[in-house]
Simulated scan of single mutants.
Amino acid sequence: MSRRFRGESHHKVDTKGRVSIPASFRRVLEAGDPNWKSGETPELVIVYGDHRRNYLECYTMQAIDEVDDKIDAMPRGSKERKMLQRLFHGQSFPTSVDETGRLVLPAKLRQKIDLEAEAFFIAAGDTFQIWKPETYDTVERAKEEEWLDELPDDFDPLVYLDRAREE
């Protein structure tokens, strides 16, 4: 099992689109890049997706290879394969971390999610997401609160792990 991204943080974005990646995230990117060597910078793939996606999802090379293998296993010419190829191959941006631990986000990606002076990073297991902080607060936190409000006060989310084992 590969290392997982964990945590969340806010980072400044400069006028050239440079933003520091949390140090712990950089260690996971290094571990998830089979070509990475000490003293070099790890590669990653940023999937920006279609107009409905309002965040950037960053994949280690290992994680994107797993996605690619699953796409390749689908029937050639199927609508599903074509759509997933468009999303993960066409609507993505391969890049690397620079020598100072930053990502350079092109203007196209910053404009897509309306990213300006600050970025919000949040771990998502084998990926991490980059959001405009205000969008995350209004969209994702609202979904989380809605879900939590439907649960009893003494609810323990670990129960979902036991269900996953049963399936």
Results as ranks from 00 to 15, higher is better:
Tyr59His: 03
Ala107Trp: 00
Glu99Gly: 01
Thr100Val: 04
Arg6Cys: 07
Gly7Met: 09
Val67Asp: 06
Pro42Ala: 07
Leu103Cys: 14
Glu66Asn: 08
Thr41Cys: 10
Ala107Thr: 05
Glu57Met: 06
Gly77Val: 14
Asp98Phe: 08
Ala119Lys: 03
Pro22Leu: 10
Leu161Asn: 14
Lys143Trp: 05
Lys132Pro: 06
Ile113His: 04
Glu80Gln: 14
Thr15Pro: 00
Thr100Pro: 04
Gln85Gly: 08
Leu148Arg: 13
Ser92Val: 04
Gln111Tyr: 12
Gln91Ala: 00
Glu99Ala: 09
Glu57Ser: 11
Ser9Arg: 09
Ala63Asn: 07
Gln129Asn: 11
Glu66Met: 02
Lys112Ser: 05
His10Gln: 14
Glu167His: 11
Arg163Ile: 10
Met1Asp: 15
Val19Gly: 04
Leu115Lys: 01
Leu105Met: 14
Glu167Cys: 12
Arg4Ala: 13
Gly101Thr: 05
Pro22Trp: 05
Cys58Arg: 01
Glu145His: 10
Ala23His: 08
Ser2Gly: 15
Ser24Leu: 15
Ala107Asn: 06
Val47Trp: 00
His51Asp: 06
Ala124Phe: 01
Tyr136Asn: 03
Arg110Gln: 10
Val45Gly: 00
Ile113Tyr: 03
Asp126Arg: 02
Glu30Trp: 07
Ala164Leu: 13
Gly125His: 06
Thr138His: 13
Leu103Asp: 03
Met1Leu: 15
Pro133Asn: 06
Asp14Arg: 04
Asp137Lys: 06
Ala31Glu: 11
Leu161Ile: 15
Phe155Asp: 02
